[in-house]
Write a protein that binds this DNA or RNA. Structure first.
Ligand code: NAD
Ligand code: NAD
Lengths: 211, 211
DNA sequence: CCTCGCTCGTGAAACCTTTCACAAATGCTC
DNA sequence: GAGCATTTGTGAAAGGTTTCACGAGCGAGG
C-alpha cells in the first residue's frame, strides 16, 4: 500500500498540507487546487502534486482535490487513523509545557504517562497525570501501550533511557536532549535541538552582515 | 570571507561538530580526526571534511584537526563571536521553559526581554525578567538591541507580530506557532513544529507496520 | 633525511529532490 | 454534445547534496 521510500521532506509537507485541508474544511470549501495549498504551505503547486502522486492520484483535473477525502487519505498515510499513546520521560520544565498543551490531543496524540527520577517530583500531579518513578519505566510503557516516547531529560542519562525504551519495544522517539542518540535499525529518532536552531539563525545573521 | 551559499544542512552539522569539539576540549584532547567527529555526530568522515572544506582547510594531514583552533573557527563561522540578544514574544508555558533554561545563555544567547498581551501576566517576573506589554514591542526590541525573536504565541496573532518585528529590524525569528509565516527577503525564520515531528513519527510507525 | 602510515582536501560520481512543461482529463457553458 | 478553461499527473531536466576514491602532505620513527 505504501510505496518504498518516501523522503522525510515529503512527509513533513504532507503533515502541513493536512493542517490547511482541515482549515479549508472548517471554512466549508469542498475542493482545493494544488496551487492554493502550495501558497499556504510555502511551496509550489508542482511540489504539492508530486508529493501526493507518490501515494496515488486523488485529484480531479480541471478542479483540484476534494478537501474531505484528501484529508482522510493524508491521515491514513500519516498513520493518524488511530490515536497514539505517548509517554514523557523527564518531568521538568519542557515536560510541563508539553503536558499542558491541548494541541497534541487535538491532533491525536495522547500523553498517557510522565516519569521522572527525582523523588521530590514523583507522585506530584501534572495536568491530571501523576508523575511516576522512572525505575518503573518498563512497566509504565507496557501498561500504557505506549508507542511514542518524548525524551526531555538532561543529556547525561538520555542514551541509557533510550536503550531501555528500545528494549521494551518503543520504536519512535522525539528527543529534546542535545545528544546524538544511538539506536538500532528500525527505531526512529527525531531530534529537536533548539540550540542548533538558534545557531543557524546566528549564522544567517552573520552571513548577511558579511555581505 | 564567507563563501557564497552554504546549505542549511551543513550549518546544522557545523553546530553539532562544535558541541563535540567542546566536549573533546574539556577532555583535554588536542586533536581530533574527521572520523571521530563523524561517528559522534552520526555522519561520515567525508561529510565532515566536505563541510569544513567550504570554509578553508584547517586540518593537518596524517593527524586531524586541532581541537581548540577548529572550535574557535566554527564559532566565528556561526557568528558566535559575540553574545546574541533574544526577545521572547508570548509569556506562556513554552516561554517559561525557555526563559528558565540555562543552556541558551551558556551557548551565547541572552534572553533580554519577554512580552505578552495578557494584562494578568504583564508585570509578573519570569526568571528575573519582568514581562512587558506587547504594545511596547518596538520599544522593547530597540532598547534591548534585540537580534533574534522567539515567537511563542498562539497561531492567530503570529503573522501580525512578525510584521511588527520585521518593521523594527529583526531579521532572525524562531517560530513555535503552527503557521507558515510570510516574511520579506532578508529575514530568516526557523520553524519548530512539534505536531509535525510527532506526525512524521506516526508515519514511520505505520510505514513499518505495513512492511 | 628518508620512508612509512595516516588523514586531509577535493574533483568526480552517485544519488536524491525540486522544478519544468505539457499531454490528458475533467467540469462547465452554451 | 462540442468547445473551452482549467488543473492534474508525470516524465524529463535541473539543481543540490552526499558519497567515493585517491593524490597530496604531514609527522613519526628509525
Ligand atoms: N527548557 C528549554 O527551553 C530547553 C531548551 C533546549 C533544550 N532543552 C533540553 O531539553 C531537556 C529537558 O529540558 P528541561 O528544561 O525540561 O530540563 P529540566 O531540568 O527542567 O527537567 C529535566 C527533568 O528530567 C529529570 N531527570 C533527570 N534524570 C532523569 C532520569 N535518569 N530519568 C528520568 N528523569 C530524569 C529531572 O529530574 C528533571 O525533572 C534537556 O536535555 C535540555 O537540554 C531544554
Ligand atoms: N506548549 C507546547 O508544548 C506546544 C507544543 C507545540 C506547539 N506549541 C505552540 O507554541 C505556541 C506557544 O505555546 P504555549 O503552550 O506556550 O501557549 P500558551 O497559551 O501557554 O502561551 C501563549 C502566550 O501568548 C500570549 N499572547 C497571545 N496573544 C498575544 C499577542 N498578540 N502578543 C503577545 N502575546 C500574546 C498569551 O497571553 C500567552 O501568555 C503556540 O502557538 C502553540 O501552538 C506549543
Amino acid at each position: 500500500m505504501l510505496p518504498r521510500k518516501i523522503a522525510d521532506s515529503t512527509v513533513r509537507r504532507l503533515a502541513i498540507y493536512l493542517r490547511f485541508l482541515e482549515e479549508f474544511q472548517r471554512q466549508g470549501q469542498a475542493t482545493v487546487a494544488s496551487d492554493a495549498l502550495a501558497q499556504r504551505a510555502g511551496t509550489t503547486s508542482a511540489q504539492v502534486r508530486k508529493d501526493l502522486s507518490f501515494f496515488g492520484s486523488f485529484g480531479t483535473r480541471g478542479l483540484g482535490y476534494d478537501v474531505v477525502p484528501l484529508a482522510d487519505r493524508l491521515r491514513e498515510i500519516l498513520g493518524l487513523g488511530h490515536r497514539h499513546r505517548v509517554a514523557i520521560i523527564g518531568a521538568g520544565r519542557l515536560a510541563a509545557a508539553l503536558v499542558d498543551y491541548t494541541g497534541f490531543s487535538a491532533r491525536g496524540f495522547e500523553i498517557v504517562a510522565v516519569v521522572d527520577r527525582d523523588p521530590a517530583r514523583i507522585g506530584a500531579v501534572l495536568a491530571g497525570l501523576t508523575i511516576e518513578d522512572v525505575a518503573d519505566l518498563e512497566h509504565v510503557v507496557r501498561r500504557g501501550e505506549v508507542e511514542i516516547a518524548i525524551l526531555v531529560t538532561p543529556a547525561g542519562p538520555a542514551q541509557a533511557l533510550v536503550d531501555r525504551l528500545v528494549a521494551v519495544g518503543i520504536t519512535a522517539i522525539l528527543n529534546f536532549a542535545p545528544v546524538q542518540l544511538q539506536v538500532p535499525e528500525g527505531v526512529d529518532v527525531k531530534n529537536v535541538n533548539l540550540a542548533v536552531e538558534l545557531e543557524t539563525l546566528s549564522y544567517a545573521l552573520s552571513a548577511r552582515a558579511a555581505t
